[in-house]
């Protein structure tokens, strides 16, 4: 990803302590990955920009609450994923996402449509998980090395995936 999590962790800890001198650097380190996550989840540049801006707003508003024992990037990613989920739900409610299939473009618009629905469903299911599980899955998705590694990370990921599957089954009734 190009972002050294240890550097971000240290900078976030300093920002949580009130060191405003690192604000711009933290912003720079977070903006790219957060924006990319939103683009990959929402598949729409305008929505992704809105969600990423709102996510940055929330992340830095809560920077003082940042727990120095946890890695910063998965924490920020989980907040951004939550923001994407909120935006998707809002759009679903307003039926703004109901674009005709042929407007999706590309060679296989049906596939794109299915993909978009699956992404929205995955974001919704992700929102029903605990914050810890969300962070683990988002970190796994982005191949972010958390503070734990090896067997611990694998076990945590497996447990989070099991809970994700259960939530998926409960919400949509299929695997």
């Amino acid at each position: 990803m190009g972002t050294d999590p240890n550097t971000l962790d240290a900078l976030m800890a300093r920002l949580a302590d009130g060191d405003r001198g690192v604000f711009a650097r933290v912003f720079e380190l977070l903006w790219g990955p957060i924006h990319r996550l939103c683009v990959s989840l929402l598949k729409n540049d305008a929505d992704a920009s809105d969600a990423a801006q709102e996510a940055m707003h929330k992340i830095l508003e809560r920077a003082s609450d940042y727990d120095k024992m946890r890695p910063a990037m998965p924490w920020a990613m989980a907040l951004a994923a939550w923001e994407c989920r909120t935006l998707t739900r809002k759009h679903t409610r307003r039926r703004e996402t109901e674009a005709p299939i042929d407007e999706l473009g590309g060679e296989h618009p049906e596939e794109a449509f299915v993909q978009r629905d699956l992404t929205a469903a995955a974001i919704a299911a992700l929102g029903d998980l605990s914050e810890g599980d969300r962070e683990t899955l988002v970190a796994a998705f982005w191949d972010e090395a958390a503070s734990v590694s090896g067997a611990t990370l694998r076990k945590r990921r497996e447990r989070a995936l099991t809970r994700f599957r259960k939530t998926w089954r409960r919400l949509y009734g299929l695997d």
């Binding site: 920002l15 009130g18 604000f23 711009a24 912003f27 903006w31 920009s49 801006q53 940055m56 707003h57 830095l60 508003e61 809560r62 920077a63 003082s64 609450d65």
Partner: peptide
């Protein structure tokens, strides 16, 4: 996206959060 403006807005949110 005007990143400078966004950064300013987010900075304000940070201060309000504190």
């Amino acid at each position: 996206i005007d990143l400078a403006h966004l950064q300013q807005r987010v900075r304000w949110a940070y201060e309000l959060g504190r």
